[in-house]
């Protein structure tokens, strides 16, 4: 009898009960998180069904009819719309350029700061260049309009001196440049910190050895500093690839205007206007959103695989 009891208490089910009891307080602490992620991350995933429906908020997700014959009506509509392809092209151009420009800018900035020997200058400079990161794009847009906008100093100076009015923020030719430049202005200083921290960890002996071999400054940067920050750089690059199709909604929504939609409208701003604007076609908006999520997900997986094939540490 006794023996049987012992065996019973060791059964898998009882064991699970025991372990649950042991970690009951930790489980208590994780319950809010489970509720949070289910409600705010997984319920919207169920909402993806909207992309396949002729959605009317009053009818609800289940009650709305399927879009088109096979539920793909929304996708057929958006893929036929030439403006969707314009927006997708803009998104890719802006996303990829921003990724590359900010990547290079951060590394160059870090290399330059790392070469400064005056500690006071270095510290002051870093405080100044990292500050804009903590401002919202609303404020940065205000500062940009102040210089490049219709009553900004450039336009004012031109018109006062008898030239034609030229408002850069309404100009398709210059707008993207402005987007990239303001992005570097705001973020380059902050992004460089991570590289600077990695550089601070490089053993000084490597530089000493290079000195003895008679290496110049550039040679030392090329052969010691850059290889040392390579793993960090690749990791950050992989992490940012997933955001290419996001292309910086906050920045664009605050800086663009109807005059430059043709070059500056991106998927996120397009979805936003689709849903809140006059048309109100949530089904198609959700379809574009799903397209974006799926492509971004595939991009992350792909880049991760490539990085692993090249012998670097991946993320997944």
């Amino acid at each position: 009898m006794n023996r049987k009891l012992i065996i019973k208490s060791n059964s898998p089910l009882n064991d699970l009960g025991n372990r649950t009891n042991k970690s009951k307080y930790l489980l208590l602490m994780i319950i809010p998180a489970i509720i949070f992620y289910v409600v705010f991350c997984y319920l919207p995933m169920y909402g993806i069904l909207i992309a396949f429906k002729d959605f009317y908020p009053k009818k609800g997700i289940v009650g709305s009819a399927w879009a088109g014959e096979n539920g793909l009506g929304n996708f057929q509509k958006i893929f036929k719309d030439p403006y969707f392809w314009t927006v997708l092209r803009n998104t890719i151009i802006i996303g990829v350029s921003k990724l590359l420009i900010s990547f290079v800018a951060a590394i160059v900035m870090a290399l330059l700061i790392n070469e400064v020997r005056l500690r006071l200058f270095k510290k002051t400079f870093q405080t100044i260049v990292t500050f804009p990161h903590f401002l919202s794009w609303v404020i940065v847009a205000g500062l940009v309009f102040n210089i490049f906008g219709i009553s900004g100093i450039i336009n004012k100076a031109l018109t006062l001196n008898g030239h034609d009015s030229m408002t850069i923020i309404y100009d398709k030719k210059f707008f993207l440049g402005l987007i990239f430049a303001s992005d570097v202005w705001k973020e380059a200083g902050w992004s460089s910190i991570i590289y600077l921290a990695t550089m601070a960890g490089i053993s000084p002996e490597l530089y000493e050895a290079a000195d003895i071999d008679g290496a110049t400054r550039l040679q030392k940067i090329w052969n010691i500093t850059l290889p040392a920050i390579k793993p960090t750089a690749i990791l950050l690059l992989i992490l940012s690839v997933g955001g290419i199709l996001s292309a910086g909604f906050d920045q664009i929504i605050n800086m663009y205007n109807p005059g430059v939609y043709e070059v500056a409208d991106i998927l996120d701003t397009y979805i936003y206007r689709y849903t809140l604007g006059s048309g109100q076609r949530p089904g198609e908006g959700a379809a574009i959103g799903l397209f974006k999520s799926v492509v971004s997900f595939i991009l992350v997986i792909m880049v991760d695989r490539i990085a692993k094939l090249c012998g670097e540490r991946g993320i997944i």
């Binding site: 699970l16 372990r19 649950t20 042991k22 970690s23 930790l26 489980l27 994780i30 998180a33 489970i34 992620y37 409600v39 705010f40 991350c41 997984y42 319920l43 919207p44 995933m45 169920y46 909402g47 993806i48 909207i50 908020p57 997700i61 997933g242 996120d268 979805i271 936003y272 849903t275 949530p282 908006g285 959700a286 959103g289 799903l290 974006k292 999520s293 971004s296 997900f297 992350v300």
Partner: peptide
């Protein structure tokens, strides 16, 4: 603790995939 790796994976997935703006607004 029981179910830790499940919860962890459930959280990590949300870093790379989401429902998008319109399902969120509906929610």
């Amino acid at each position: 603790w029981v179910g830790k790796s499940f919860v962890m994976n459930m959280i990590l997935v949300t870093m790379f995939f989401g429902g998008g703006l319109i399902p969120y607004m509906n929610l």
